[in-house]
Write a protein that binds this DNA or RNA. Structure first.
Length: 666
DNA sequence: CTTTCGCTAAACACGT
DNA sequence: CACGTGTTTAGCGAAA
């Protein structure tokens, strides 16, 4: 009797049991009380033990919150300060999209709705937006205060009598001061995230402590040096020029730039029309009459700052002063380096942010208890696993790092319906479906899963298999499997009891996992044959088969061998469905297409998924969502195209099966 | 509506 | 006895 409710009950209880979950979110629950007193904390409050990292996280979080509030206000039309909202409308769209939705959706949901890269993009976008808004807000506030102050002063002059006035003034000044302090602080925090674009002109902040990265002043310095240094031997010539074009936009540095491209579609709730890229700080580029290197009446060529009355003059200046010569190319190179550095920095910081978000948001503030139940993670495990992780992680810079160089990171752009479904409590089967491209998915996002506490969209079986296949000898002990899970997925660093049980359960339940006695115990191996067999349980031969295979089992059949091979080599490409989908990537496809094709269908229909994909395409699939009937139909044709080869193979699954088994232990 | 699938929970057996 | 490993059963929810 109890049993029945057990699962339900358990689900909810655990969270309380471990309590950790909720507490973790409000780290420093006590600190929370402290509220705004980060300064206090910094100066060594009671909990002076708070590690710098924690502090920083906390600060960041707060800064973000402030920004969010402000944005909400704006979105609500309460724009407080200045009445000149000329630009507001443009901003509002993104705001509503980027900010509001997160509010309505739990972070967790977001995680599940969006594919990792999307998430990344979204996060960054949000950050950028918030930062800009924040900056503007501060500016306005300051102006307003100044104004008020002035008014007061004047009033005071006219009626120089009571002290209340003096008091008022004082109050204002204090307010102003506070404002500035606050601003400084937030901006500082933001800088730490490497996202603020400080421009000499507009930065109100001293910014003495820019993290490790380049700070504007340094930059200027650098520029001067370069400029002074004159010609560099090996001028890059034309190529350099081209590069310039690419980088040019980065003049204003990351924040603003990074996000726009990533953009907004793919937002679950409303693909709210178009959003004008936020302008604010970088007004160029929206205005046809402007130039990325021209702003605020001066030339923005690094280290230049020459005043130009108008665009025409500027252009002239540009052509004369910054023509294609050694110096310019050298500067260009420097700029490239700068940008690169910033990108790296950005990647790092955003990764950190993700981790933070993942960590802080894990608890479902939702009525519906999610499967997320506990944060069992013993700190011990955590630290351990993380350390484990690092070695791996280090070599390759954060996923995002690689991407930024190109216009944007890989943009998955679309939300897979499957993912959408994930939203809820469980990701179950869809994972199954999508597990198909597991290796590729993993390959693409492993960095993400490693650090973000997101449940991977794969079944235990497929994960186990992946783990095993990844090893040279295709065999693992139970413990090694555990380790693989924790190493590869942040998600599995918690609730160990649960998922370990599930792993064991899967191992013994599925025939595809074979236990082999070994000298020093037992190891588990994968019987590919069984594995593939398993998927299409009922549909043998039937026409549906194909479809099922494609959708559900995808993986197994066709790619088995590919998979294996790929897996062996560390699941490098084998790129996902997406690619196909895109077809843009046609080049690479040949290898994986089998696999892909099988998967493609779904992908197409769902529209989503994936990860990497070519950015270009990205704009299209926007609306995806899930349109059952049509989507399917659509997808079909498409997949066919992609699949042609495949179809040839598919006709007889028998064949497939026979083929597959090839390399494993029979 | 039924079946299948995957997940979680839990009981139990065994060996160390 | 505690713990890890395996096996098995049961119930639930989602998808087919």
């Amino acid at each position: 009797m109890m049993v029945e409710s057990a699962s339900e009950t358990i689900r909810s209880t655990p969270s309380s049991q471990n309590g950790v979950g909720s507490l973790a979110n409000q780290p420093d629950g006590g600190g929370g009380g402290g509220g705004g007193g980060r300064e206090g904390a910094a100066s060594g409050e009671p909990n002076g033990e708070m590690s710098p990292v924690e502090l920083l996280h906390f600060q960041q979080q707060q800064a973000l919150q402030v920004a969010r509030q402000f944005l909400l206000q704006q979105a609500t039309g309460l724009s407080s300060p200045g009445g000149n909202d000329a630009k507001q409308p443009a901003v509002q769209v993104p705001v509503s999209v980027a900010m509001m939705s997160p509010q309505m959706i739990t972070p967790q949901q977001m995680q599940q709705i969006l594919s990792p890269p999307q998430l990344q993009a979204l996060l960054q976008q949000q950050q950028a937006i918030m930062l800009q808004q924040l900056q503007e807000y501060y500016k306005k506030q300051q102006e307003q205060l100044h104004l008020q102050l002035l008014t007061q002063q004047q009033a005071g002059k006219q009626q120089p009598k009571e002290q209340p006035l003096g008091n008022k003034q004082l109050a204002f000044q204090q307010q102003l001061l506070q404002m500035q302090q606050l601003q400084q602080q937030h901006l500082l925090n933001l800088q730490r995230q490497g996202l603020v674009s400080l421009q000499p002109g507009q930065g109100t902040v001293p910014l003495q402590t820019l993290p490790q990265a380049v700070c504007p002043s340094d930059l200027q310095q650098l520029w001067k040096e370069v400029t002074a240094t004159q010609p560099v031997e090996d001028s890059i010539k034309q190529e350099g020029l081209d590069l310039t074009t690419n980088t040019s936009n980065s003049t204003s540095f990351s924040a603003a730039k990074v996000s726009p491209p990533i953009s907004h579609h793919s937002l679950p709730n409303g693909q709210s029309a178009m959003h004008t890229p936020r302008r604010d700080s970088s007004s160029h580029e929206d205005n046809p009459g402007s130039h990325p290197l021209y702003g605020h009446g001066e030339c923005k060529w690094p280290g230049c700052e020459t005043l130009c009355e108008d665009l025409g003059q500027f252009v002239k200046h540009l052509n004369t002063e910054h023509a294609l010569d050694d110096r310019s190319t050298a500067q260009c190179r420097v700029q490239m380096q700068v940008v690169q550095q910033l990108e790296i920095q950005l990647a790092k910081e955003s990764e950190r942010l993700q981790a933070m978000m993942a960590h802080l948001h894990m608890r479902p503030s939702e009525p519906k208890p999610f499967s997320q139940p506990l944060n069992l993670v013993s700190s011990a495990t955590l630290s351990k696993s993380t350390s484990d992780t690092f070695p791996d992680g280090l070599p390759h810079p954060p996923t995002s790092a690689t991407a930024p160089i190109t216009p944007l990171r890989q943009g998955p752009s679309v939300i897979s319906s499957s993912t959408l479904h994930n939203v809820g409590p469980i990701r179950r089967r869809n994972s199954e479906k999508f597990c198909t491209p597991i290796s590729s998915e993993l390959a693409q996002n492993h960095e993400f899963y490693k650090n973000a506490d997101v449940r991977p969209p794969f079944t235990y079986a497929s994960l186990i298999r992946q783990a095993i296949l990844e090893t040279p000898d295709r065999q693992l002990t139970l413990n090694e499997i555990y380790n693989w899970f924790t190493r590869m997925f942040a998600y599995f660093r918690r609730n160990t009891a649960t998922w370990k049980n599930a792993v064991r359960h899967n191992l013994s339940l599925h025939k595809c996992f074979v236990r082999v006695e070994n000298v020093k115990g037992a190891v588990w191996t994968v019987d590919e044959h069984e594995y593939q067999k398993r998927r299409p349980p009922k549909m043998t031969g039937s026409p549906t088969l194909v479809k099922n295979m494609i959708s559900g089992l995808g993986y197994g059949a066709l790619n088995a061998s590919y998979q294996a091979a790929l897996a062996e080599s560390n699941f490098p490409l084998l790129n996902s469905p997406t690619m196909i989908n895109t077809s843009s990537a046609s080049g690479m496809l040949h290898v994986g297409h089998d696999d892909v094709s099988s998967t493609v269908e779904q992908v197409n229909s769902n529209g989503s998924n994936s990860p990497r994909l070519s950015p270009q395409q990205y704009s299209h699939p926007v609306h995806v969502k899930e349109e059952p009937a049509e989507a399917e139909d659509d997808s079909r044709p498409v997949s066919l195209m992609a699949t042609t080869n495949q179809n040839v193979t598919i006709p007889d699954d028998r064949d497939l099966e026979e083929e597959l088994p090839v390399e494993d232990l029979s």
